[in-house]
């Protein structure tokens, strides 16, 4: 994805007041306290254990740490995580990476 395309998308979403996740292929994460995390727009599962789950999205990688993690349900672009969540870290890939 080229840089100018990215900027255009950014501008369109701001100008038309569109939700960022639709326009920018970003993951949408909904958490309920530290019990559930509902992740949409993910493209892949990179690592899974009961302490850490790493999920790939279009533009980077998402790392969720916690205790007794388990995936309640997994579909093509959705993922429902259960357990005791501790942290959610983002690692955005550099352009072209």
């Amino acid at each position: 994805m080229s840089k100018w395309q990215n900027q255009l998308r950014n501008w369109v979403s701001q100008y038309f007041d569109l939700p960022a996740d639709v326009m920018l292929d970003l993951p949408r994460i909904t958490t309920i306290g530290s019990l559930h995390a509902y992740i949409e727009n993910c493209t892949g599962l990179l690592h899974f254990s009961d302490r850490e789950v790493r999920i790939q999205y279009r533009r980077g990688e998402l790392s969720i740490k916690g205790k007794d993690l388990r995936i309640k349900m997994m579909l093509k672009q959705e993922l429902l995580l259960e357990g005791e969540l501790i942290s959610i870290d983002f690692k955005e890939l550099k352009e072209g990476g």
Binding site: G44, L45, F48, S49, D50, L69, R70, I71, K72, M73, M74, L75, K76
Partner: peptide, 17 residues
Amino acid sequence: FIHACVKQGCTFSDITY
């Protein structure tokens, strides 16, 4: 493997470590 299956349209649930 899990990811490939999901891409083909499978539904996984209750994945525990």
